[in-house]
Amino acid sequence: MRPFAYTRAADVAAAVAEVGSDPGSEYLAGGTTEVDMLRIGVARPRRVVDINDLPISGIEELPGGGVRLGGLARMSDAAAHPAVRGRFPVLAQALEKGASAQLRNMASMGGNLMQRVRCAYFRDGGAACNKRAPGSGCAALGGVDRGHAVLGTSEHCIATHPSDAAVALTALDATVHLRGRAGERSIALDDFFLLPGDTPEREHPIEHGELITAIEIPASEEARTSHYLKVRDRESYEFALASAAVALLVEDGRVARVRIGLGGVATKPWRARRAEAALAGAPAERASYERAAAEELAAAVPRRMNAFKIELARRTMVRALETTASLGARGGTG
C-alpha cells in the first residue's frame, strides 16, 4: 500500500472543502471498498479525509411515508430500521443479502452507492482497463467474463455494478442528496449511475468532492408489497449472478403499479422500464411476467461465458414478480 496522509473532518462543510479543493484527497467512510482499493493500489490518494464523525448517519421517517437515510447510515442500521422494513421491505432484504454482517456494520449507504466494480481486471494493475486507466483497453472483452454484464455494456467496459441495495433503491425511485463546494443538489438514483459508454472511468455525474449527505426514498403504496430475489453461486456472502427488486400493486387481477430493478447483470443498477411498460395493466399472471422479462432482456448482449445470465435474469425477474404478487394477495407487507 502506498503511503498517504490522514485527517478526520469535524463537519460537513470542512470535509467538502478539504476534498473538493484537493484532487489528491478522497473520502474515507466505512472503508470496505476504499481500504481495499488503497491496498491493491487502484486508489492512490495523497490523503484520505475520514468523514465517520460527521452528523449524517441518522435515519429519519418522513411525513407521508418516505424515509431519509443519512449518507453515513450503516447498511446494518438501515436494514434494521422499522420504517425501512415496514415501508420498503425490498430494501431491507437487499441490504441483508449484501456482503456479511461485519461489512454491513462498517459500510455506509453513501459508500454503497460509490463502491467500485468487482471486475478482476479493474483490480489488477497489470491488466488493460478503461475504467482504471482510460484508453488502455478492456481485458474483460475476450477474457474471463462469466460474472460480467449483459445489459448496458459498451465496447469499452462490461463490468457489472455490484450493489444489491442500489438495485432496490432504483426500483424505489430514491433521490441522492449531495453537498459540494457550490452548494447542495439532488439527483434521481437512476441518473446517479452512468452507463460506461466511451467514458467508463466516469461512473457518476458528480464533481470531485461532492459528498452524499442523504438518500431519500419517497412513499409508495406498492413498495409495501416488495421483494428482493438474489441468485448467486453460494447461498450467502456472495455477489449476485442475477437479482430482481420488485414492488407490485395488483388490483382486480391486473398490474396496477409495478417497479422493477435488476442486479448482477448490468453495468449500473438497472431499472427495468421496458418490463414495467409491458406489465402496465396486464393480467397479474406468469404469462405476463414472462413476456415482460423477455422484453427487458431483448437488448442483452452475451459474451463468451456469461450468456447464461440472460436466461437467469429472465427467470429471476419472473419468480420475483410471482413472489411479490403472492405477498400482495395475502395482504402481507413482506
Binding site: 490522514y6 478526520r8 474515507l28 472503508g31 470496505t32 481500504v35 481495499d36 484520505v48 475520514d50 465517520n52 446494518s76 454482517a101 461485519q102 461489512l103 456494520n105 462498517m106
Partner: peptide, 19 residues
C-alpha cells in the same frame, strides 16, 4: 480478523488504525 469497534463486529483488515 473480526474484532469489535465500539461494540460492533467489524473487519480489522479493512479498518485503518488511525480511524
Amino acid at each position: 480478523c473480526t474484532v469489535w469497534v465500539d461494540g460492533r463486529r467489524v473487519l480489522g483488515c479493512l479498518t485503518l488504525a488511525v480511524a
